[in-house]
Every structure is written in structure tokens, then in C-alpha cells.
């Protein structure tokens, strides 16, 4: 499953246009989809923040009879699962875990992908060749299969899941950054920095990387979405962290009773759907805002 690659290998034609940049925020706010996305995402973040306040008890606590349908008991508005745990509490607490998995694994992927891509693009030659071979290695192995193997090896936990997702999703970042750096390298201000004798590291950090930021931000927003989906897929296969209530875990755990109790999988499934949707809409909005050439069409 090339989830990691699927959406994140976004259009190769997305060069930054720093010259004509408007205020990105204003541009995003003109994009109705992105506004919707932001609202949904804010809701998810709000749920995560409010969870400890609204549901101070552990979401694992069995509070009622099992299999109570939604909207029948005020105390458990979204019903209970196979053990009598409150679905609403699970959703709220799960928001934090799912967003955390998405965010941290994306950050980790960026941490691997950006430096490698920058070095490959800036130094070129042998270094570039070697780094690209290395990247190819990870792109050639089926990514979902690799993620499964990694989680199985490290044993299922939040940490191993984040690591596995990060390890299969960095190659597109490297390719993107490399391409950007390649085109920036010959710019005058970069050359000027070279002449003044700044170190490679300083040049990359000060002059080159800041200008690759916008496509990376767009890519990252999509990667967070993909990571959340990946987490749910891994959980479906029973590779989730049994100590953390995440949306993926809830869907995975509810799937065996999907015939008797649709709500156990439907609500967390819906939460995943909405969040992934929101992140994609935001990504699109960001892309249009940061890359105004295309947004004219709207």
C-alpha cells in the first residue's frame, strides 16, 4: 500500500514563487475548502485538549453495559463498545493520540528527509548519487509492507508506530527538497554567500532552506493525514498500541463486532475521515496560497 507515497508525491510541478507572494494567511482564508478544513482540525485539536477536562477518567474504564447504542443514554451519548467503555470519551482522548502520531511521525520524516534532500541537492555529484540510491532503496520496498515489518520487529507501541511511519514516509520529502535546492543553488544570493566564505551548513540553513519552506509545508500537511490513515491500517492488522486509545485502535477493535454494533467503528472512522479530509483541504489551500499561479483559476 503506497499510502505514504500516494498523496504525498504531490504534483512535481510546484515551484515556489517567492516574488509574487501575498499574505499566505489571507490567501488561505479566501479558500473555502481550507477554511472548512481549518475549522474541522480546530475541532479535533479542541477535542484533544478538552478530553482531560470533560472526561478526566481513563477512556479504558468500563462505565456502562456493553453495546449501548448511541443517542439512547445521556451519560454515554455515543454509546458504549464491546466492554462497556464510553465511545465519546474514547473519541476525545483518541484525538490527541491520533494527531500526535500524525504530527510526530511527520516531524520525524521531515527530520530525516529535509537534511538528506538538502545535502543531495546542494552538494550534487557523488553525494547526491549515493543519497538518491539510498532513498531509492526505501522507495523500492513496498512501504506499507515495510511499516508492518518494522512495527512487528519493534513490537507494537506508540513509539514503534511513529518510527515505522516516519521511516516509510521520508523519501518523498527528500526528493522534493532536493529538487527545490537544486533550482535554488545557482541563485545569485546563494552564490554570493558562497563567495563570502560561509560554511555549507550556514548557507543551507540561512539562504536555501527558508526558501523551500512552502512546498514542504504543503507536503507535510498531507503527510500528517497519510500518517493518521497508516496508523489506523496498522491498528486494523492488530499492530496498534494496546495502552493508548487512538481512533485507529477503536476502529480496529470494533471491526469484529461491526455487524452488531456499527457505532463502535463508525464514530472513530468518521473522525479519521474528517481529520484526513480537513488536512487535505488545508494542504490544497496552502498549495494555492503559496503557489498563486494555480489559484487564479478559482
Amino acid at each position: 500500500m503506497s499510502r505514504a507515497i500516494a498523496m504525498t508525491d504531490s504534483p512535481p510541478a510546484a515551484p515556489p514563487a517567492p516574488a509574487r507572494r501575498r499574505s499566505p494567511l489571507a490567501a488561505i482564508l479566501r479558500h473555502p475548502g481550507a477554511v472548512l478544513g481549518l475549522v474541522i482540525l480546530a475541532g479535533a485539536i479542541g477535542a484533544a485538549l478538552l478530553a482531560p477536562v470533560l472526561y478526566p477518567a481513563s477512556p479504558w474504564r468500563m462505565v456502562q453495559r456493553p453495546f449501548i447504542p448511541p443517542f439512547t443514554l445521556d451519560r454515554v451519548p455515543l454509546g458504549t463498545d464491546a466492554l462497556g467503555r464510553d465511545i465519546a470519551a474514547g473519541l476525545m482522548h483518541g484525538a490527541g493520540v491520533s494527531l500526535l502520531v500524525g504530527l510526530v511521525s511527520t516531524l520525524a520524516a521531515l527530520l530525516i528527509g529535509v537534511p538528506l534532500g538538502a545535502l543531495a541537492g546542494y552538494l550534487g555529484g557523488r553525494v547526491d548519487d549515493a543519497l538518491m540510491r539510498f532513498t531509492e532503496l526505501f522507495q523500492t520496498v513496498p512501504s506499507f509492507a515495510l511499516a508492518i515489518v518494522l512495527v512487528a520487529i519493534l513490537q507494537p507501541s506508540l513509539g514503534s508506530m511513529i518510527l515505522a511511519i516516519a521511516l516509510v514516509s521520508w523519501p518523498p520529502v527528500t526528493r522534493l527538497v532536493r529538487g527545490e535546492v537544486l533550482s535554488l543553488r545557482s541563485r545569485e544570493y546563494v552564490q554570493a554567500a558562497v563567495v563570502t566564505g560561509q560554511t555549507t551548513f550556514t548557507i543551507l540553513r540561512r539562504e536555501v532552506l527558508p526558501n523551500t519552506l512552502s512546498p514542504i509545508v504543503v507536503l507535510a500537511s498531507l503527510m500528517v493525514a497519510t500518517a493518521i490513515l497508516l496508523e489506523s491500517s496498522l491498528s486494523f492488522l492488530g499492530l496498534g498500541d494496546p495502552n493508548r486509545m487512538s481512533w485507529g485502535f477503536m476502529v480496529g477493535a470494533g471491526r469484529t463486532v461491526i455487524r452488531q454494533a456499527w457505532w463502535i467503528t463508525a464514530f472513530p472512522g468518521l473522525a479519521i475521515l474528517l481529520t484526513v479530509l480537513a488536512l487535505n483541504l488545508i494542504g490544497e489551500g496552502l498549495n494555492d496560497a503559496l503557489n498563486p499561479r494555480l489559484s487564479r483559476e478559482r
Binding site: M1, A6, M7, A225, L229, S232, S233, F236, G248, V251, R255, I258, T265, G269, I272, L273, L274, V276, L277, N280, L281
Partner: peptide, 14 residues
């Protein structure tokens, strides 16, 4: 299209 992408695949399948 986005909807089909964002819904967990196994859920749609089931």
C-alpha cells in the same frame, strides 16, 4: 475523490 481517499480502506471494504 477525497472522501474515498480519507475513509479507511478496510472500513469501506467491510
Amino acid at each position: 475523490a477525497l472522501l474515498f481517499y480519507a475513509t479507511p480502506l478496510f472500513w469501506v471494504s467491510l
